[in-house]
Design a protein around this nucleic acid. Sequence first.
DNA 1: GCTTAAAGTTAGGATGTACTAACTTATTTG
DNA 2: CAAATAAGTTAGTACATCCTAACTTTAAGC
Lengths: 240, 240
Amino acid sequence: MTPREDSRPTRTEALTAPVEDYLKAIYAIGRGTGAAATNEIAQRLALAPASVSGMVRRLADQGLLAYERYHGVKLTESGRRAALRTLRRHRVIEAYLAEALGYPWDRVHEEAERLEHAASDELVDRMAATIGEPEVDPHGAPIPTRDGAVDETEYMALGQLPVGASGTVVRVADEDPEMLRYLAELLIVPGKRIAVKSRAPYDGPITLSIGRQELSIGQPLAMSIMVAPAADKAGKRGPG
Amino acid sequence: MTPREDSRPTRTEALTAPVEDYLKAIYAIGRGTGAAATNEIAQRLALAPASVSGMVRRLADQGLLAYERYHGVKLTESGRRAALRTLRRHRVIEAYLAEALGYPWDRVHEEAERLEHAASDELVDRMAATIGEPEVDPHGAPIPTRDGAVDETEYMALGQLPVGASGTVVRVADEDPEMLRYLAELLIVPGKRIAVKSRAPYDGPITLSIGRQELSIGQPLAMSIMVAPAADKAGKRGPG
DNA sequence: GCTTAAAGTTAGGATGTACTAACTTATTTG
DNA sequence: CAAATAAGTTAGTACATCCTAACTTTAAGC
């Protein structure tokens, strides 16, 4: 082992790609505050739980997370900062690929998954500046600032919106290219106003209105679409 | 040169970053044809020779290079292709960083060293297209095409140019940021016309004229500057 | 509160890449 | 051509990350 005798707050000595992936996963599971279970981490990273046990101990030794055997894991302040640094890289890169290089939104995620571990902070900052300091990535996920501040508002899934309610799409799940292509086809993208017209029972299809169109989607897909519910009730609809 | 004999992907399982670095180094040493010695590879990659022996055997097993114990190493066709793929990535990325993101030319190399292992071919192609399919990187190094064709012309070092001769700077060494900043200050950049006015003996300073200016530089620096000699009065090069 | 299922851990091993130390082969030179 | 030197290799080790199999702890249901 190479214990860190130095008590200084970890002089950012470039984490490895797997470590950054663990931290991102733990952050995503606990959204900054909660704890993450070994099995959840394993599932999210497609690893065996035993591998997670081992890695989690090493990360705890490095001060990146608090760990008690059999009781899951929680990011320390330093781990949280590292996670947000990676998240910022990922999302700025996604936004840049889409904006500056014409990448289709269903493929930015995969490319960013690799680049986020290789790009320097300077590169990421230049990318962000070049496209006008975006606040969200192409799927609507908020981009942490350089100082590690990030909007952690929890939105409601479209699948949870009651019949008659309406809202604005703020974010969609970013990992499944096929799904993203389908959503784009339906014009379900961040910023769009959506109203729930009806729901079939037993998690059946949900009928929506978007602009002047009506369409219906399944419950699983509806759970991948996050919306900001409108304050008023249904009935109002603006142009577009 | 190097006609594509086979355009099928032959999708080799994505090489690791160290493997790509070995192939690049071996290519650079042998410039495609020659053989590379274990110690040279080790020095270039800042590794112990023993580590190179081990890796080189594995690369030979993978068919990336031809290896005979105690007699150095040579890229196979497949290894050469892989090396040029990495080189293309590296140089396109350098050109893109400089052109599209305003990176200063002394820092593109380091950033590209990491990104070259993470960027997909598609990303690299998009970058190249966006900046107009450049043929050289910011230091003048030729960019291999998608099919693995590359200009392998060997130029002469400015330090070898006889007094009275002149030429055009085609390329400078790309690894040392401080040196690059100094060269930029002196306006010694690709495309510039330079004439050798005089040389002090014992590898002493070389006096040059660039445009209307005269200046002198040391022999080591002059060896890092590659020039295309002008066809005029140039005599024959000396021995060596 | 006991039994069992779920969750989590340890043990032991594989792979890729690096190291140092000790040895072998190749090359140079007197 | 033999001794000295340079170059290269093997042996043994380390470390990060992953795995499977077997074990332990916690949580859940009666």
